[in-house]
């Protein structure tokens, strides 16, 4: 699915243009445009109900957007229009992986099996769509060993190697979050979408998460798009922040820029429109020193 979109530079991995999503009378997202750059961590923040998860669901195909275009620019030059693909094809072909706000692990499978399920498509091909593998032909055996090796690498990175043979449902909350990220990484994504990865983590786990995300970006070159409420995570690790309110973008830029944007402050502190002016003035005055 290559389109002749020339305005997109090789630096942009994901481009969302004029995205709108309507649920009946509710406009969850209204004409949103944003870009995520390759090799960066882009954060999507906003107050509760701003439409962050809806944007995620549109990008990963779990919702079909009412309007707009979402272009994924792969490393090998392929371009995919995500709004035309179904959810599993987005992971399979466009190489976009995601995690969920309420963790969705295969709790009855072991930690290792969770990571092997994530390598399904690769292994299906190697096993000749099961038939060759059943007969013991082809490269399935080698590929299966390779997939366990890959899983082992990610378990080490996520600090879960000691729990590899335990059921995923038995892990503590923080470890489940890390496992979900490791599982998404096992699909070999170029863009990793994380929906509130730090929710419910204690400060120590939150720190470990930052390290994990940084190492994903630096060592695998995977770009990350994340939704987050925990400002310490957002400000610490993101290269680029997009702020949503009521389904619209209100700010876009570096963490420092966004942090000082009066509109963002107003959105988070809940200031009335007429008071907004005051806030902006205060900001301007305060910014002089």
């Amino acid at each position: 699915m290559t389109s002749g979109n020339t305005t997109m530079t090789r630096d942009t991995i994901l481009k969302v243009e004029h995205l709108s999503m309507r649920f009946g009378g509710l406009m969850a997202i209204n004409d949103l445009s944003l870009e995520a750059r390759r090799g960066e961590i882009t954060a999507l923040i906003g107050p509760n109900g701003a439409g962050k998860t809806t944007v995620f669901n549109c990008i990963t195909g779990f919702y079909k957007p009412t309007m707009g275009m979402i272009t994924m620019n792969r490393r090998n030059g392929e371009q995919h229009l995500l709004e035309r693909l179904s959810d599993f094809e987005i992971t399979k072909k466009a190489k976009v992986a995601r995690t969920f706000q309420n963790i969705r692990l295969f709790s009855g499978l072991t930690v290792l099996e969770n990571l092997l399920v994530a390598q399904h498509n690769k292994l299906m091909k190697a096993s000749g769509y099961t038939i060759m593998g059943l007969l013991g032909l082809g490269s399935y055996k080698r590929e299966a060993e390779g997939s366990i090796e890959l899983a082992r690498q990610w378990l080490e990175k996520a600090d879960l190697i000691d729990r590899a043979d335990d059921p995923a449902g038995d892990l503590p909350y923080g470890a489940q979050r890390r496992l979900e990220i490791a599982r998404a990484m096992c699909t070999g994504p170029e863009l990793l979408c994380l929906d509130e990865p730090a929710a419910g983590l204690n400060p120590k786990e939150s720190l470990a998460l930052n390290t994990l995300l940084n190492s994903i970006r630096d060592e695998t070159g995977t770009s990350i798009l994340l939704i987050e409420h925990d400002m310490s995570v957002v400000m610490e690790i993101s290269d680029h922040v997009v702020v949503l309110e009521y389904g619209q973008k209100i700010s876009d830029g570096t963490p420092d820029h966004v942090k000082n944007d009066p509109k963002v402050i107003a959105a988070y502190l809940g200031v009335d429109d007429d008071e907004l002016e005051d806030v902006i003035h205060e900001e301007l005055d305060g910014g002089s020193h």
Binding site: F62, F88, I90, T99, E113, L134, Y140, A184
Partner: peptide, 27 residues
Amino acid sequence: KLRSMPIGRAWEALREDEIACRSLGID
């Protein structure tokens, strides 16, 4: 045999969580 092959694991994963399966690129 099927259980230890990708298709069998996908079946069990499907029993555990269908949406997670789709998010991992499983048809």
